[in-house]
Amino acid sequence: MVYLEAWDDYQKAAEELYLRGPLKTRFVSEYRHKEGTLVLKVFDGVKCLKYRTDKQPDLKKFERLTLSLMCKMQNKREADMMDVDEAAKEGAEEPAITTPIQSPPPPAGKKARKKKKN
């Protein structure tokens, strides 16, 4: 059982470990609400890599790693995987990808504008 401290090292090592044994390797996330901890684990039956965090900003990294590993599990090409971010920035180029739904502006802003006009 190995806990890695640096995220970049962890992501790299996790992806490498997965690619070494794609049929055996699994990716587990453990979340304990009471303790406020999130533990990520990549295990191939022999080697186990873990990362522990209690910080909210790490969730973004967790999202990215999840997507990357999911694509590797499905054997999707890297290019497809990157499209998610690019599509969000440049607008969807491929018809297969649905354009991200833009969240409507917060209601507070609208009210504020109305107030200002009056």
Partner: peptide, 13 residues
């Protein structure tokens, strides 16, 4: 699971 439990989410090919 907010009170005491742990949620495990596992992904595999």
């Amino acid at each position: 699971s907010r009170q005491q439990r742990t949620v495990y989410v596992t992904m595999k090919r």
